[in-house]
């Protein structure tokens, strides 16, 4: 075994990438708002989303679009036709289209940033006497708190809109399937209530688990080199790791953002018009 690999083996721990150390302590009463790696990634994602959205959809627009504007319009059209219009009733589109569009872009950017090696890390390395943060990949969406927060917005929006458009009685009645036998209502009602909360869990866990799995697979593939302490594994590990990386960046990132935004639209649209 190479001494370098042996040394690395003792240091390698894929879980380490997901630890959230407190970088800037910030406490508001019982609420811990301390800045950590996930918060920085969220800020970065927020800024990048805003810049991307404004760059693609605001400046230098003309009736004869260039490549940048065409991309912006394609993204806009994708969200409008494939997500918003297929899930949200027309009467509520003006309110909820910007929401699902922002959700899609925000999650997509957070996912993509998660696969860009950035010097935002707990670890540092020495370069000519200067301590620099090591490059690492981390996705804020691979954290359940982040995805749960986004899912909670959809959850509350769903029920607020359901009550606003239908009134509380009609809305909550719409949870019960038509023609359900009365003796079974005692069983059906709790199930339906639970199913509403399960939506919250499924929405948040789906995105979180997918992103976490992608990162884990890549880290584990690279970690095999250190786990087995063998140089001959390098081509296989890097090869498979690259394949998984490309698969994640090329497909999973977009699909997960799309699914989250689409399900949000479907839940909100379904609450506004429960009969559909």
């Amino acid at each position: 075994m190479s001494p370098l690999l042996a040394a690395a083996e003792s240091d390698f721990d894929p879980q380490h990438e997901f630890l959230l150390e407190e970088w800037i302590p910030l406490h508001l009463g019982p609420l811990d708002l301390s800045v950590n790696k996930a918060v920085v990634y969220i800020w970065l994602g927020g800024i990048a989303t805003i810049l991307l959205g404004i760059w693609l959809m605001r400046f230098g627009l003309s009736l004869r679009p260039d490549r940048r504007q065409t991309t912006g319009e394609a993204v806009y059209d994708l969200v409008q036709s494939q997500i918003a219009e297929s899930s949200i009733p027309t009467k509520a589109l003006h309110i909820w289209f910007p929401y699902v569009a922002s959700l899609f872009l925000f999650i997509w950017v957070l996912n993509i940033i998660g696969f860009v090696p950035l010097p935002i890390s707990n670890d540092t390395f020495d370069l000519f006497g200067v301590e620099l943060p090591t490059l690492g990949i981390y996705a804020a969406t691979a954290n359940l708190s982040v995805t749960l927060a986004l899912a909670l917005i959809t959850f509350f929006a769903t029920h607020v809109e359901g009550i606003r458009y239908n009134g509380p009685t009609r809305y909550f009645k719409s949870w019960i399937p038509e023609g359900a036998p009365k003796p079974l209502l005692g069983l059906i009602v709790p199930l339906e209530v639970i199913s509403q909360f399960m939506r919250l869990i499924s929405l948040s866990v789906r995105l979180f688990a997918n992103m976490l799995a992608g990162h884990m697979l890549i880290l584990v593939m690279l970690g095999l080199i250190f786990i087995f302490s063998a140089w001959w594994l390098v081509p296989f590990s890097i090869g498979f790791g690259t394949v998984i990386y490309l698969f994640e960046v090329g497909i999973v990132v977009t699909i997960q953002a799309f699914v989250f935004a689409l399900l949000s639209g479907i839940y909100i649209g379904g609450a506004i018009e429960p009969e559909h």
């Binding site: 301390s34 800020w43 805003i50 959205g53 922002s102 925000f106 954290n143 708190s145 986004l150």
Partner: peptide, 26 residues
């Protein structure tokens, strides 16, 4: 584990993104 502080940051950041994009881009 659900970290309320991180959820608050997520919520606030998303609301800012939503407002800016709705106001200036879409």
């Amino acid at each position: 584990d659900v970290v309320p502080g991180l959820m608050v940051w997520t919520f606030v950041t998303f609301l800012i993104v939503f407002w800016v994009l709705r106001r200036f881009a879409f």
